[in-house]
Computed example of a mutant assay.
Amino acid sequence: MGHDNWCDSAITRNLGLRFPILQGPFGSGHSSAELAAAVTNAGGLGAYGAHHLSGEEILALAGDIRRRCDGPFNLNLWIPREKEWGPASDPARELAYLQRLAPMYRELSLLEPAHAENPLHRFEDQVEAVLEARPAVFSFVFGIPTPSILARCAERGIRTLGAATTVAEAVALEAAGVDMVIASGLEAGGHRPAFLTEPDPRSLLTTFTLLPQVRDAVSIPVIAAGGIADRRGVRAAMALGADAVQVGTAFLACNESGASRLHKRLLHQQGSTDTVLTRVASGRMARYIRNRLTESSAGWPDPALPYPFQMSLTQSLSRASMDRNLPDFATMAAGQTAGLCRHFSAAELMAALIEDPAQAAAPTT
């Protein structure tokens, strides 16, 4: 089929892309320079979730991506919040929570942590590194950068991209001067990037409910995210007014991503991968593959400590679980499209996203 009409959008024109396809930026090491470059080389916008990296690591990463491709790419950070939703942490609460996790640590022969920690790097240092690296796009979740940061991005020719889970958040991003907005539906894997109100699973909007409302509410380019894993999803999103789509889970399942072998194998198990919204991975609501950890925590009076302290408690559990090829306590992000993951390379997935689904339906190995 021809590409001319649907590929000619505000996103492709502004960023110099062949196709209006953006790779989702995965955090916690699930992104890779190899994947970002592969997507860019195939005509889309590669991305890297860098919230877990120091400033020096971000600069090294940008250099690595540029050595692998000549086109544009996106670096993503998490906006810090002054206060997390929910009750504040205290020693008694932390001790009670550690006692609930203790049997899981013992089952994996791990030393139980004495307390939760803050594993984050300084956001200000990360921003300075992004500004110095000058990616084509600086994207962010959980809020809006300060006017100064946005102005400095504009001075350097860096396009800004914010994530919204509601129409009000999209309007706020446009009002602040952000260049582009992601309409992120509940189907999406990973964290719910809400920032104006606490995300409530009972009131989250699906992508194709949120997208047309955001399209009507803002004049800046809109990218649809959540529930898009093949050409059918791309076509539907563009028909509802999207200027581009962001694909996460299907790229996470590709060989080039930083996800573990276990994680990728589960994403490719068609029809048998169940996902849930949970706070147990980081303390913030996110969509992960259902397992013993998510199900156990759902029944606890206190399902998670605040972010980022919760993350420091589950990371070692997750790594040990994946090292043993056991899904029980692994925190593995996945969207509701996990059952549609068919492709094992980013180039093959890109081809399937831009071609007719009937021509790209055969699984590749």
Rank of each mutant, 00 (worst) to 15 (best):
V222R: 03
M322S: 06
R290Y: 10
H263C: 13
R66L: 12
A154Y: 06
Q310K: 05
V171F: 01
A320K: 08
L349A: 00
R265D: 13
A244E: 03
P113Y: 14
G185C: 14
C7K: 11
G283E: 03
A361F: 12
L111A: 14
R68I: 12
R67W: 03
S260A: 02
F208D: 08
N74A: 05
A37L: 04
A116L: 06
E34C: 04
R232V: 09
P119T: 06
G190H: 05
L211G: 13
L111H: 12
Y105N: 10
A172M: 07
R134A: 11
R68P: 13
F123M: 09
A259S: 14
A250G: 02
C341G: 01
D230M: 08
R192W: 15
S148D: 04
V234M: 08
P303N: 07
L240K: 12
P193Q: 03
C7Q: 05
L110A: 07
H30I: 09
I354A: 11
A362I: 10
A36R: 00
R67Q: 09
A351K: 08
D200K: 01
P327Q: 14
K264F: 10
P25N: 04
T294F: 05
T146P: 04
G241M: 00
W85E: 12
G177C: 15
T337V: 13
D356Y: 05
P72T: 12
D323Y: 05
I58A: 12
G24D: 01
H343T: 03
R152E: 15
D243W: 02
T197K: 11
E198I: 07
S260V: 01
G46V: 04
T314K: 11
P91K: 04
P87R: 14
E82Y: 13
G24Y: 01
E132Q: 15
L317C: 01
K264S: 14
A168L: 09
F26G: 01
F142A: 11
G258R: 04
D216P: 04
A175H: 12
V214L: 15
N291A: 03
Y105G: 08
N291H: 02
A172G: 13
D323M: 08
L108P: 13
L240N: 10
G190E: 02
H263W: 13
A358L: 14
E34M: 07
G162Y: 06
V127F: 10
A33R: 11
S203W: 05
F138V: 08
L317N: 00
C153T: 00
G16S: 13
Q246T: 09
G335P: 02
P147Q: 10
S318G: 02
G43W: 01
L349F: 01
P201L: 03
L204E: 11
A358W: 10
A183I: 00
A304V: 01
Q23N: 02
V167C: 12
G226Q: 07
E124A: 15
A172C: 06
V178I: 11
S296Y: 12
I354R: 15
H121D: 08
W85Y: 15
D179G: 07
